[in-house]
């Protein structure tokens, strides 16, 4: 991947507040059209990193290039090519969903009609004339994303778009994010939901205490972990001793409701279970980014 074709290039950026190193030497590149996730717990430095890339903050050191240009100091030529959704829902008072979009659109010279069309993309067409403060949390987030996209930017930055949403609203928003990607946009987004990053992102950077701990496609990160797969059965289907004796089983243990078998070779284990007719209530859980995080930091992931 050459840097000319990269949408975002970040080289060793650092930012300290007093003694706190909020961002401590972060480097990565994002290709055009890529869905790039920055994830980590609160206080990991995700938002500061994003703000430096967007040109809202000046890094203490290091360099950022967006589409070959520096975003700092405020680069008016670059601004129309990037779309930013901020963490807070930044709206004008008392305007309807449609009016919010049209007002933000007009800041970029976008016609009122084009702006209103964005409502369709985020599934808010039926809420066009609702005032922003009457929308639900998920609807506000979708409107906020539509406002970031209204001028058809090449790169979209989303800061925790799914934070504080109920599961259904999160899943609705995933569809919106996929639709944006399908339009060929480059997306850089932060989240503290590991499961979500695994589903949506082409690549993820896992951050903690201002540093990137790992950067790869989610599947590669999980595979590289060499973590066992957990197969869970209903309690009483077989004994712990029988389970432990099967080929490929590393460990088996039982609690009040289920029997859990750990294996790094799930194929022979699953076929052995099928032979015994022990598939009732079977669940298979492979390693997730949470396990990756646990492995990298030595502590449980707490969003």
């Amino acid at each position: 991947m050459t840097e000319e074709r990269s949408a975002v290039v970040v080289r060793d950026i650092r930012k300290s507040y007093g003694g706190l190193k909020a961002v401590d030497g972060v480097s990565f590149t994002v290709a055009e059209g890529e869905f790039f996730g920055i994830l980590g717990p609160n206080g990991a430095g995700k938002t500061t990193t994003l703000e430096i890339i967007e040109g809202l903050r000046e890094p203490d050191s290091g360099e950022v290039r967006l589409l070959g240009e520096s975003p700092w100091p405020r680069n008016v030529k670059l601004l129309p090519r990037i779309g930013v959704q901020l963490q807070a829902s930044s709206f004008f008072e008392k305007l309807t969903a449609k009016e919010q979009l049209q007002t933000f659109g007009s800041l970029y010279g976008v016609s009122a009609g084009t702006a209103a069309d964005m409502l369709e993309l985020v599934g808010l067409a039926d809420k066009a004339n609702e005032q922003e403060n009457k929308l639900s949390g998920g609807q506000r987030q979708r409107l906020s994303i539509a406002c970031a996209l209204v001028h058809d930017p090449d790169i979209v930055f989303l800061d925790e778009p799914t934070a504080a949403l109920d599961p259904q609203a999160r899943r609705n928003l995933w569809d919106v994010l996929r639709a944006i990607k399908a339009r060929g946009k480059t997306i850089v987004y932060t989240t503290h939901y590991l499961d979500e990053a695994e589903i949506l992102c082409d690549r993820v950077a896992i951050m903690d205490t201002g540093r990137i701990l790992a950067l790869d496609p989610p599947a590669v990160l999980v595979r590289g972990l060499d973590a066992p797969t957990h197969v869970t059965l209903q309690k009483g289907v077989m004994s712990v001793a029988d389970a432990s004796a099967m080929d490929g089983v590393e460990e088996a243990h039982e609690d009040e409701v289920s029997l859990t078998i750990s294996t790094r070779r799930p194929a022979p284990v699953l076929s052995a279970l099928a032979e015994r007719g022990a598939l009732d209530g079977l669940q298979v859980r492979t390693a997730t980014l949470e396990d990756v995080f646990l492995n990298l930091t030595g502590r449980e992931y707490r969003a």
Binding site: E54, G55, Q87, A88, S90, F91, E93, C147
Partner: peptide, 17 residues
């Protein structure tokens, strides 16, 4: 105050206006 608190000011600064 409300525009600063709700980050509308920041959002406007990110637009070429």
């Amino acid at each position: 105050v409300s525009w600063r608190r709700k980050q509308v000011l920041r959002r406007i600064r990110l637009a070429p206006v």
